[in-house]
Design a binder for these strands. Structure first.
Length: 256
DNA sequence: ATGGTGGGTAGCCCA
């Protein structure tokens, strides 16, 4: 079983890349972020034609999340009880053997800014929500664009990024607090190449020079951890013409 | 040199 996450930075623009990737990789689940597509315009029929069910929670211009899956999902949730937020950043749903929680964590702009305060508040509330979900659904995968590089090893130049947005101690503490709820960073369960990143700035030829950060993650619950057999970053889509600035991260689960 | 590029959308916001 293959499960992936990808910030596509506009589903409309990236539709050919997403369809090609689904056809090549044949994942069971693909969670995407930054669809920038309101629900009325979501191209669900295109995915149905390609053998994928789609759940989505979108808005105009900004944000938006969706989950594509071979089998239909159920118990869709977009608005946790403790989070009153018009921004479409979360989509949870249950599949045959596990629950998926797809997150588009706020970027936060700059440490200390109003958007940073929103990010930290959002993270605290989502962390509490995830704690409750884990109690109800022990087999859970939390994945998405976390907009947090958890460790210096996840940053091309840790000195340059020290205390900066995506790398600040409070963001990293929020990430650790998520793990403490009973989740594991699948990427770090396996040996990985050095300088592995999931996002590269469009500016300053970031990808060509591998000036990236690992901010897209797949966290698996303790109950699922024994069944996770691999986790990797697929850099191929980032090499295409007009790519997203993020590239897919995926895990393999051997649930027997 | 607080730059640079890209998406959505119509003069900017957001990443």
């Amino acid at each position: 079983m293959k499960i992936a996450t990808w910030n596509v930075n506009s589903l409309r623009v990236r539709l050919p890349h997403v369809l090609d990737w689904l056809s090549q990789e044949q994942p069971d689940i693909l969670a995407v972020q930054e669809t920038k597509t309101q629900d009325a315009d979501f191209p669900a029929n295109v995915f149905a034609d390609n053998g994928y069910h789609a759940l989505f929670s979108g808005q105009k211009t900004y944000n938006g999340v969706a989950v594509f899956s071979r089998n239909p999902g159920s118990e869709r949730l977009t608005d946790p009880d403790n989070l009153d937020d018009p921004q479409r950043r979360i989509l949870a749903a249950s599949y045959d053997r596990f629950r998926i929680i797809n997150l588009y964590v706020p970027n936060g702009s700059e440490v200390g800014s109003e958007k940073f305060a929103y990010k930290m508040d959002w993270l605290a509330k989502i962390s509490e929500f995830i704690r409750r979900e884990l109690e109800r659904y022990p087999h859970t995968i939390v994945l998405g664009d976390f907009n947090i590089a958890p460790e210096d090893a996840d940053v091309y130049d840790p000195a340059l990024w020290r205390d900066k947005i995506l790398c600040s101690p409070s963001e990293r503490a929020a990430f650790q607090s998520l793990l403490k709820a009973g989740l594991h960073d699948a990427f770090r369960l396996f040996e990985q190449p050095e300088s592995s990143f999931s996002w590269w700035d469009y500016r300053a030829a970031g990808f060509r020079r591998n000036l990236g950060l690992r901010i897209d993650h797949i966290l698996i619950s303790s109950a699922l951890k024994p069944y996770c057999t691999a986790c990797r970053i697929d850099k191929a889509p980032r090499k295409l013409e007009k790519p997203s600035d993020h590239t897919p991260v995926l895990i393999e689960l051997d649930l027997k």
